[in-house]
Design a binder for these strands. Structure first.
Length: 444
DNA sequence: TCTGGGGTCCTAGGACCC
DNA sequence: TCTGGGGTCCTAGGACCC
């Protein structure tokens, strides 16, 4: 907290209750992916839009208009084609370069308007306003909302409360209720109560579908009932995580505010294939490509991995096929971020788990037991000359790919044809991250 | 024909040690 | 005849999030 100075010395010996002090805002971009598509294509305004998952599999994001048509979250694309055609729904493959870039622009704007910010996901951030009791928070949040849309074109909603969970709930109401103009503070007990009385238990942050069902079986049906549930009972029947949610609903902050993002514990790269794969040679291309991608991420973050794991699986949606899934991992002789070495071990694992005669649907690589490059424990057998050479090579590869576009330089093992490559047939341009795809303005 | 990908945390149970 | 118990580490599985 940055304004401890403002605490009056005469009251400083009385520990202030954290409940009274903690105040947090959740800023959430409205229909983020759909809004991103609209920024560079204003014709999409007021029209139904959906964005598809990788492989153009299912709808992972929807504009309000698409929601109104009854397209559910996660709907498989092939099951909603009729609605799409009938209502001329605009359909996009996901364009993560674009969304990632716009996300960081939004976050930079938020950083300028709050002291503490915790970036929670690609489209959400918590802002810590604890101790700013004199600030007119409502007015300030309206200003934030205006500034973000001016700087980035992305509309946001802001919810404010005495705990993260309550801020989440406030945000939800701000989005749903036009009278709030996109900003709602439910810190006042009367408003908190009103909000919790109407909210279904399954809509509380931290309560997924499994626990919602179980809670409802016990008669806990709305957020207010969860708030009033016996804490011990919740911890015994569920776990301590849900116990924290109960406290949060009572306005007792129990989920910490984390300004500095924790370093990764694991990095995964996996994809479903565009079409089923049977030959190990093709699986190897995929595993090599995913490994290279994961290793690149590792290096970009200044990390090393100690363990690599590979998994392959058939499709559970093809019951006619015989099913098989397996995974295995190897602890490396020493921590590394060298793509070639990781691919080498990835192949050893793949050889050990591959079974002939199955139609594989997906493969993936996970890097586990990740450590920062600084101050890591060097193996007794480490060959420092070899290591230096590998570092130099990787540095060059990363530099070239950054300059000339990703995958300009790659490993032979990654292959070229990539028959297994995912479908991505409706992608918009990388407007902001690729010179070739920058939008052209035409004067008439 | 067509159903995503990338994360975190917690818990229970087994192995192992003293 | 009598056959401990507590701590720690690891792993798999299950829950959650976006």
């Amino acid at each position: 907290m940055k304004n401890l100075d403002s605490i009056d010395a005469s009251t400083a010996h009385v520990p202030p209750t954290t409940e009274a002090m903690f105040k947090v805002a959740l800023v959430d971009c409205n229909n983020f992916y759909a809004s991103c598509e609209r920024v560079f294509n204003p014709r999409l305004e007021n029209r139904p839009i959906i964005i598809l998952s990788n492989n153009d599999g299912c709808a992972v994001a929807r504009s309000n208009e698409a929601k109104a048509l009854g397209i559910p979250m996660g709907a498989p694309f092939h099951k909603i084609r009729d609605i799409v055609q009938k209502h001329d729904v605009q359909v996009f493959s996901s364009n993560y370069e674009l969304y990632g870039d716009l996300s960081s622009r939004v976050m930079r704007t938020l950083e300028d308007m709050a002291f503490d910010i915790e970036i929670y996901s690609i489209d959400e951030a918590f802002l810590n306003f604890s101790g700013f009791s004199l600030l007119n928070l409502d007015a300030h949040c309206h200003k934030i909302k205006k500034t973000v849309v001016r700087n980035t074109g992305i509309p946001v909603s802001i919810g404010i409360g005495p705990s993260k969970t309550l801020a989440k709930i406030a945000n939800r109401l701000a989005k749903k209720n036009p009278r709030t103009k996109g900003v709602l503070d439910i810190s006042e007990p009367r408003l908190t109560k009103k909000a919790l009385d109407i909210l279904r238990v399954g809509d509380v942050w931290g309560v997924g579908s499994r626990w919602a069902r179980k809670l409802e079986d016990y008669g806990v049906k709305n957020a207010a009932q969860l708030r009033d549930a016996d804490l011990r009972w919740i911890e015994r029947k569920f776990n301590v995580v849900l116990g924290r949610t109960v406290l949060e609903l009572r306005g007792i902050p129990s989920i910490g505010f984390d300004e500095s993002p924790k370093s990764n514990q694991s990095i995964t790269s996996s994809r479903s294939f565009g079409k089923k794969v049977t030959a190990i040679s093709q699986l190897k291309e995929a595993v090599a490509s995913y490994t290279a991608k994961a290793a690149e991420k590792l290096r970009a973050k200044g990390l090393l991995t100690n363990v690599i794991s590979v998994f392959i699986t058939t499709s559970r949606f093809s019951p006619a096929d015989s099913q098989y899934q397996n995974s295995a991992s190897i602890t490396l002789p020493e921590a590394t971020s060298d793509s070639a070495m990781l691919i080498h071990y990835g192949f050893i694992i793949l050889d050990s788990i591959y079974r002939d005669g199955y139609r594989y649907h997906k493969a993936g690589v996970m890097l586990l037991d990740i450590v920062p490059i600084r101050g890591y424990q060097q193996s007794l057998f480490s060959d420092s000359a070899k290591r230096a050479k590998s570092n130099k090579l990787m540095e060059t590869v990363d530099l070239l790919n950054k300059k000339m576009g990703s995958n300009t330089v790659r490993f032979g093992a990654q292959g070229i044809q990539h028959e297994w490559r995912m479908r991505r047939e409706r992608k918009s341009s990388a407007y902001t991250t690729c010179w070739k795809e920058i939008p052209v303005i035409q004067a008439i």
